[in-house]
Each structure stands twice: as structure tokens, then as C-alpha cells.
């Protein structure tokens, strides 16, 4: 299993400037951290890897996966945790998890296990609107991991979280990557994530200096 970006270019509709321009990158099983300043294209790359966007030019080779973006790919091969609003409103924690398990075709017990690992069993029947930001993010991580996807994409999973919640999430991610051998790609500018990364992709080095923001004095 491997993901490879070949001359990957993406330009948002209506924009002349590409967010990603000719990116070449190989991503192997384990945790890959995409690091860079806001707006450098980390999240866009995650969406491209998940098949939620189509490259303007170049390609993504996903060896061992169904076609990225296809229903089969999104149901069981890939799980994405967005920066915010990851959960279905007006539904309980358990309903969010159960729905994810049913769509992926995995036993509901797997969902319960992940809730347990992320310390959420006590909130099983609580509506997600009543959870704190950290708890919501943990539910979203549990919802993603319970599918045991070979590709896990996390967009700023620890952004705005306290150290306790961050530690729980990072531990869970490490455990998931180690146990399943999946490809985990994390887009984050939070340095607390650095220690768990097996590979680091620094967008500061990838992007030409002209496209990088000027350093603060």
C-alpha cells in the first residue's frame, strides 16, 4: 500500500494561483505529518488524497486502494476527520459511531472498543451538541478509526484542544497506525503532533520561497 503524488497541481475554481503546483510525494504506511503555515495547501492535499477534490493536473496513485473518491473507497478504505463539524447533529455519540460502522460494514463492537479507548463510553447516549470541543473531536476520531480504514486522513486533529485531549488523540492515532499498518496522514501546524510522526513533510521546504509568507521580525 502506498500513495504517490505525481506532479500534483490543484487550483481552486475561480483562482489563478495554484494551491499545489507540481507536487511529487510518496506516502507510506505509518504516520505522515504534513506541516506548514495556514493556507499552504495541507488541507487541500488531504482532500485530494481522499478523492474529495480532483487534481487540476498530475495524479495520485493509490496502490492497493479502490479509486479515490468512489463510494467503495470512502465507505471502507478511507476515513477523514475534518477540522470541525465532523459529527452528525441531532444524533447521539453511539448513533454517529453505529452509522459509520454500518456504512463500512464492520461490527458495532469495533465502534464500542474505540469509544472505550478514547474514554467516551460514559457519553454513549449523549447528543453530540452537548459535548465539549475535545470530546467531539475524540468522537470524530473514534468514528474514523472504528472502520479500520487503510487510509486515515486527519485535518488539524488537535487544533484548539488542551493537552489531555491532545494526548488521548495522539495515543489513539499511534495505536491505530501500529495495529493496522494503515497510512495515516495528519495535516497540522501543532508541534505537539511531531513526536508521533514517522515521516514529516514540511511544506516550507516543498514550496518555493516566493510562495511562502514573509518571516515575522
Amino acid at each position: 500500500m502506498m500513495l504517490a503524488c505525481r506532479s500534483l497541481t490543484y487550483r481552486y475554481p475561480g483562482s489563478d494561483t495554484p494551491v499545489l503546483d507540481g507536487l511529487d510525494l510518496e506516502i507510506h504506511p505509518g504516520i505522515t505529518l504534513l506541516r506548514g503555515y495556514s493556507g499552504c495547501g495541507k488541507s487541500t492535499l488531504l482532500r485530494l488524497l481522499g478523492g474529495l477534490l480532483r487534481p487540476s493536473a498530475g495524479s495520485i496513485e493509490a496502490a492497493g486502494f479502490p479509486p479515490p473518491g468512489s463510494q467503495r473507497f470512502l465507505r471502507s478504505s478511507c476515513a477523514i476527520v475534518f477540522q470541525e463539524l465532523n459529527l452528525l447533529p441531532i444524533a447521539s455519540v453511539w448513533r454517529n459511531i453505529a452509522l459509520s460502522c454500518r456504512i463500512a460494514g464492520v461490527p458495532l463492537d469495533d465502534g464500542r472498543d474505540w469509544l472505550d479507548r478514547l474514554g467516551l463510553v460514559a457519553f454513549l447516549h449523549q447528543r453530540v451538541e452537548k459535548l465539549s470541543g475535545g470530546q467531539k473531536q475524540r468522537v470524530a476520531i473514534a468514528r474514523a478509526m472504528c472502520k479500520s480504514p487503510p487510509l486515515l486522513l486527519l485535518d488539524e486533529p488537535t487544533s484548539g484542544l488542551d493537552d489531555d485531549n491532545t494526548r488521548i488523540i495522539l495515543n489513539a492515532t499511534t495505536r491505530f497506525a501500529d495495529n493496522t499498518g494503515a497510512i495515516c496522514v495528519i495535516a497540522s501546524h501543532d508541534h505537539r503532533v511531531d513526536p508521533i510522526a514517522h515521516e514529516l513533510v514540511d511544506f516550507h521546504r516543498i514550496l518555493p520561497a516566493a510562495e511562502q509568507p514573509a518571516p515575522l521580525d
Binding site: 474529495l52 463510494q71 465507505r75 465532523n86 452528525l88 463500512a104
Partner: peptide, 13 residues
């Protein structure tokens, strides 16, 4: 639309 897109991102057609 965000909610519907989120549901679609789970693999719902």
C-alpha cells in the same frame, strides 16, 4: 449542504 457533504464523505451516494 455541509451536513449532506459530510454524509457523502462517509461513502453515501
Amino acid at each position: 449542504r455541509y451536513l449532506l457533504a459530510l454524509i457523502r464523505s462517509f461513502g453515501v451516494g
